[in-house]
């Protein structure tokens, strides 16, 4: 349902933009295609890997590791996985949806999504370049701890 709304908004925005400035619209379309094509390789790899993994890791196994009954240990595990992996959100959200359908819990997926976006262990060297060691460590640590609060609230509202 939401998707149809987005299609509507996007088409209207595109028409308005086209009326106002053709050149800008063309460059917007180019950017849209480029940013999509940029993530396409990772997208394909990720989908294939998860698709295959899910054949082996059946519902029972996933529920055991990050399922509803895995509790805070499952949340911790999910948060750690989210911190050390670098998956673009366009890949991460469908992956998370896939895991939910396969039996993962909302609290655990909440922690995974939150740390995935806010904590970046892999990108720390880059961050240190700009922010220095202290600020980088503190920012990532606070974001990690905060993700448990996110998980807890999501569990309360959605789970």
């Amino acid at each position: 349902m939401e998707t149809y709304i987005f299609y509507g908004i996007a088409i209207i925005a595109l028409l308005v933009s086209f009326q106002k400035n053709r050149a800008k619209t063309r460059s917007a379309l180019k950017k849209a295609w480029k940013s999509f094509e940029n993530i396409l390789p990772q997208l394909l790899t990720m989908v294939l890997l998860i698709g295959t993994l899910l054949v082996f890791a059946d519902t029972a196994l996933i529920s055991k590791i990050v399922g509803k009954d895995s509790g805070w240990l499952g949340v911790l595990l999910a948060a750690l996985i989210g911190s050390v992996t670098m998956i673009p959100p366009f890949v991460a959200f469908p992956t998370a949806a896939m895991l939910l359908r396969a039996g993962a819990g909302y609290m655990q997926i909440g922690a995974f999504v939150s740390t995935l976006m806010m904590v970046g262990v892999v990108t720390m060297p880059v961050e240190i370049q700009y922010f220095g060691k202290k600020l980088t460590f503190l920012r990532n640590l606070l974001a990690f701890v905060f993700s448990f609060a996110v998980a807890w609230v999501i569990q309360g509202v959605v789970g």
Binding site: A13, A28, A32, S35, L44
Partner: peptide, 28 residues
């Protein structure tokens, strides 16, 4: 594995286009 993957890809290719359109327009 192929069934899992194609199902997911179909969903993604349905959801993605308007978002990237908006993203491009926003940027410009």
């Amino acid at each position: 594995a192929i069934q899992n993957s194609t199902f997911q890809l179909q969903q993604m290719f349905f959801v993605i286009p308007p978002i990237f359109l908006l993203l491009g327009l926003l940027d410009v």
